[in-house]
Amino acid sequence: MQSKNEMKLEFDARSVNEGFARLSVAAFIAGENPTLDELSDIKTAVSEAVTNAIIHGYDDPEQKVVLCCRLEGKTIEITVEDRGKGIADVKTAMEPFYTTKPELERSGMGFAFMEAFMDEVQVISALGEGTKVIMRKRIGV
């Protein structure tokens, strides 16, 4: 039978939760026997998406980031959502080295990393409404 499982987490937009988020996802998919490489790829992508929400989505650390994981068969779908500032131009934001916060020494590689390490990345955003990043990857294949 095809396995199916879902989880949802909501946490403060504090940088300390970046580690918590990627470890939670790693624990959630552990049962599917992903390779170490796949696990590391997914952890990196989650870290990038959650960091974006914390740094760019909000100014207030008490705002919430929502992380959902859906496992269907061998495919993991991860959604990271904030209800913050939103992105004016998603296409430009996804270009490598593009950053709106060079003063924080952001490398501008966040979306490039998500795309490199996941099979599929989709970004839905509207100014003043927030940003939703949906990422998919087939594991253990």
Partner: peptide, 13 residues
């Protein structure tokens, strides 16, 4: 064991 693009930013800086 783990590094994301934030580490890249530190090194490039």
């Amino acid at each position: 064991e783990f590094m994301d693009s934030s580490g890249i930013g530190v090194i490039i800086g």
